[in-house]
Design a protein around this nucleic acid. Structure first.
Lengths: 242, 242
DNA sequence: TACACCCTCACCAGAATTGGGGAGTTGGAA
DNA sequence: TTCCAACTCCCCAATTCTGGTGAGGGTGTA
């Protein structure tokens, strides 16, 4: 029935990804894929809401170390650009203006990063954000052909890499997200869309005193220091929909 | 090179999706897919951050109307469950306890919704959230075989449906996201992690007066009514990373 | 050279939020 | 039944936030 049932190699890779019991295994899989596609580099990089980072890929370790040391995460136009969009994006279409971005690019080039790149952003609840990137050194038209041909492979691979990485994420369980009660959810939601406490209380037809109890209890459950923090956490954890 | 280059039918559907110039075309494509996979129903449903909803699919219009009228969006365990996870999920694995959920299920059954279902959540920045769902009436083992076989097709289709829907979304352009200055980003970020204004000013080594200017200007740029709203918007739009 | 934007600082008064208390009802779960 | 969690209401005082206006120096672009 399925479109894809006749592609044993994709099946194999996905099966290997799904069976992986340790994050280290992803490294060998991604190296295999790099060779299969005959590109310079292939990288899966994931950032969770609490700042945890994990990555596997074929970048020069020196470049990875420098990237972390320099805090390039907040400069890299690939990360910034992908953070704000959903679709796979060619590096050429990103915003490389700005002093910091250009300095970053020359530094990357000096460390052997290819002039072409294609990155697939992946998002999940709890502010999860991951990138699956392919990079290469070649001419524009050759790169266009490559991405056109392999886009769908890469989307699927990005998805399964992320699935496996999330499954194996070590610091996942401790975040025992305490569920909010319906009233607390309503309260947080209305606060997140700009209502003042008085307006929220009015909207929910309860007294402002009662409302404060909800804010307090939600704040406690979310481990937040103040109302703004509580709303931010509730959003980041996907407990409210704004 | 690519794993998938030999699957012309998937190419065709994706090409049709990418060429679509109007949301109505998605409807005929999804009907075609429903027939191709020989399932009861197939639905793409998307909710944007401003509450806009869009859907196309093969559900009975009466059920869709009832769903909207009853506000089932906030009751439906499929939506609630998928909102908090990233991976495709079988309906059987969702939490159907709770009075509201059970009432919803019997109502859905009465409207001819299948007993089996498989939903793929899709997420983007700006709180975008979409669901691609396949539903059918059959036995558990038959359904397990179906999902096992077609999971990857469905992931790709979900992706391309979402891509097209976002591209065609009418209320998308007006959201001219005004970029925040570095200081404004720092301010919003620190507020989002629970710092008080005094703490933020201290951390940034500026006076609290200055800090207020940033908050005010960020609030203005974000079109926010207060600080909490500004932080929520900055987060939802991916302008700060918490 | 303008112009625009960013960063920095200041004043003031009113409005809103916050941190502690305590207490009663309801409905579902053990 | 008993217990717990959720929902509702109330007081008070200190702290914090908000809204408006003004002003100077730096940097980069047109």
């Amino acid at each position: 029935m399925g479109f894809l049932e006749r592609v044993p190699q994709l099946d194999d890779v996905i099966a290997r990804l799904e069976c992986a019991a340790r994050l280290e295994e992803l490294q060998s899989i991604i190296e295999w894929l790099r060779d299969y596609y005959a590109v310079d580099d292939m990288v899966y990089h994931w950032v969770s809401s609490n700042g945890t980072q994990y990555g596997c890929g074929t970048y020069d370790p020196k470049w990875v170390a420098r990237y972390l040391e320099k805090g390039y995460l907040r400069v890299d136009p690939v990360v910034i650009g992908c953070y704000q969009r959903f679709h796979p994006v060619d590096w050429k279409r990103l915003d490389w203006s700005g002093k910091a971005a250009r300095a970053f690019m020359t530094d990357a080039m000096a460390h052997g990063i290819g002039n072409q790149g294609y990155s697939i952003p992946i998002r999940g609840p709890n502010g999860q954000f991951a990138l699956f990137t392919v990079s290469h050194t070649c001419a524009d038209d050759e790169w266009a052909r490559f991405t056109e041909l392999n886009r769908r492979d890469l989307i699927l691979l990005a998805h399964y890499f992320n699935q496996t990485a999330l499954k194996l994420e070590p610091g996942r369980k401790p975040e025992a997200t305490q569920p909010l009660s319906p009233r607390e959810v309503e309260t947080m939601t209305l606060l997140a869309v700009g209502y003042s406490r008085a307006q929220v209380a009015d909207t929910l037809s309860i007294s402002e005193h009662t409302l404060r109890v909800y804010i307090e209890s939600a704040r406690f459950k979310l481990g937040a220091l103040n109302t703004t923090h509580a709303v931010a956490r509730a959003m980041a954890r996907g407990q409210i929909v704004v």
